[in-house]
């Protein structure tokens, strides 16, 4: 059945967008920096993994290396760009323009290092299908959903149960107090950036595996993700993930009614109406 197939496809790609949304939300709510270069990290992750796979490295290892590479790139941006700007007391506008610069550098760096053209992973198993009865999914889709849910679960666990998670929530909710109680806000920012970058990269890899990659598609993904972050209520990780999945399902199911090329316009129109009606988001922060 077409509807069920679209529903399943929407849920699967929702897990990938949800990962971008959650990681963006984590970083944004901790640092209040609107990190548009996150889209570039997403792209970088996918290309690094593709490069590894092309060298014949087993997919899992290529994936781990790419995630680590992206986390490192994020940490570099944090340490040498955002930290520096904050030390110079830059206004949010200046931070934003610098972030946009980092996005352009990452996307076009990837385009120059690899190729500006569309790429596909070489692993033949990625298109093999699995019949679920109501719908069928590819192995790649299974990985997209599994990695998205697992990473989201791991993040929630980390946030609730570990010392780092508590430090992150503490810094996010009161940076000045965190400074004077020696929670080390700087190193928390660095850690959050590395974690968020790793998650975005994972999502970029999985989407690349499932579909194809192109250096400039990250912005579109990030737009949907940030819409989910705002609609879900800033600061609510669960809200961001749930709304991202819902948006993705909506975009997919709407394919019955309208061609896919209009889906971003429709999503955006929905968002504009939404922020006019309910600017605080669906999931109120505690």
């Amino acid at each position: 059945m077409l509807f069920l197939q679209l529903l399943v496809d929407g849920l699967v790609s929702g897990c990938a967008i949800g990962l971008v949304a959650v990681s963006f939300s984590l970083y944004y709510s901790t640092t209040r920096v609107f990190h548009v270069a996150h889209a570039g990290i997403y792209t970088l992750g996918g290309y690094l993994a593709w490069y590894g796979a092309m060298q014949g490295i087993p997919f899992a290892i290529a994936c781990a290396l790419a995630v680590a590479g992206a986390a490192f790139a994020g940490a570099v941006i944090q340490r040498f760009l955002y930290d520096e700007l904050e030390r110079r007391e830059a206004t949010p506008l200046v931070m934003l323009i610098a972030s946009l610069g980092a996005l352009a550098v990452l996307q076009n760096g990837v385009a120059m290092l690899f190729t500006p053209n569309i790429l596909q992973f070489p692993n033949p198993w990625r298109t093999r299908m699995l019949d679920l009865g109501i719908a069928s999914v590819s192995y790649a889709q299974v990985l997209v959903a599994a990695s998205g849910l697992a990473a989201f679960g791991a993040l929630m666990w980390m946030s609730r149960r570990t010392l780092l998670g508590r430090r992150i929530r503490a810094v996010a909710s009161n940076p000045f107090l965190a400074e004077i109680t020696r929670l080390g806000p700087r190193s928390v920012y660095l850690a959050v950036m590395a974690i968020a970058s790793a998650m975005a990269a994972l999502s970029g890899i999985m989407v690349g595996l499932d579909q194809a990659m192109q250096p400039y598609t990250g912005v579109l993904v990030l737009l949907t993700a940030t819409i989910a972050v705002i609609a879900g209520g800033i600061g609510s990780l669960t809200g961001a993930f749930v709304v991202a999945v819902a948006l993705s399902v909506l975009q997919n199911v709407a394919l019955i009614l309208m061609p896919g090329r209009w889906s971003i316009a429709a999503t955006f129109a929905l968002f504009v109406v939404f922020i006019l009606v309910k600017p605080e988001g669906l999931f109120r922060k505690r």
Binding site: L85, V94, G101, V105, N108, M112
Partner: peptide, 14 residues
């Protein structure tokens, strides 16, 4: 070209 624009944005902001 776009890479250079991005680098310029970063350099000038810093």
């Amino acid at each position: 070209r776009q890479f250079i624009y991005g680098a310029l944005l970063i350099a000038f902001m810093l």
